[in-house]
Amino acid sequence: VKKNDDVVELEGITIGISLRTVYNFTAEGRNYKEDHSTEELLKKGKEYAGTILKRLRERDQLKNVPVVFALYEEEEASSKVPGQFLTKTMVKGSSSSIGDWKDINEKHVLFPSKEAENDYFEDSQIFSDFREEVSDYFPNFVGMIANGFYVDNELQQVSIDIPIQFRSQSEVVGFTQYVYGLVVEMFPDHYDVEVKINSMDQQESLIVQQAGKEEPFVHIYE
């Protein structure tokens, strides 16, 4: 934090600890894989946070600096969705020990998927209907996926990737206009929607509808 024109002081530190659900390693020339449950990751992550805090407090300049720790669960490398934060805690500047942790209820969900269909049926149905409308319009449609981001089981943002093989720039413009209309018509306005339209080797256009806004933003790349 800037105190005056020439002086800044450290007011706080945030440390994210990233933990792997799948750990790949090599030993004696062979490849191995270990799976770790969320419970295991939470236990180990909290242990690591305690060790890191102890090391920080051994430094004179960090003895009284507040520290926030957050534990992040990585998905395996092949996953189509990113990981998620599990829990966080704040340690006051005068403290050398960690108290209570606060759970973070965030989740990334892939559409289409069994998880989405079973746990978030209404959102899954909207995506399915949207996908069908796109498929009916464009014969070269080859499929699309979406990533829904949930906080406390409420959808906050959905990011959609549509891969299309275009023959001309006019096709890009026409298809983007069509998808724009679908976004306005089919998606509720209480969460963000981002649609990326891609050809085989580049992004062609972008549509972004922000929560609460009447009209989406559209950009077509030259």
Rank of each mutant, 00 (worst) to 15 (best):
S135T: 08
D136V: 06
D136H: 03
Y137S: 13
Y137A: 14
Y137Q: 14
Y137C: 05
P139W: 06
P139E: 07
P139C: 06
N140P: 02
N140Y: 14
F141S: 04
F141N: 02
V142E: 11
G143M: 11
G143F: 09
G143V: 11
G143P: 03
M144K: 03
M144R: 02
I145C: 05
I145G: 11
A146Q: 11
A146N: 10
A146M: 12
N147E: 14
G148D: 07
G148E: 08
G148W: 01
G148L: 09
F149K: 00
Y150F: 15
Y150G: 01
V151F: 05
V151N: 09
D152F: 03
D152L: 03
N153F: 07
N153P: 01
E154D: 13
E154N: 12
Q156D: 08
Q156M: 13
Q157I: 09
V158P: 00
S159K: 15
S159G: 09
S159F: 10
I160K: 09
I162R: 01
I162M: 07
P163Q: 12
P163S: 14
I164L: 05
F166Y: 13
F166V: 06
F166I: 09
F166L: 09
S168L: 08
S168W: 04
S170A: 11
E171S: 02
E171G: 00
V172I: 15
V172P: 01
V172H: 05
V172F: 00
V173T: 14
G174T: 07
G174M: 02
F175K: 00
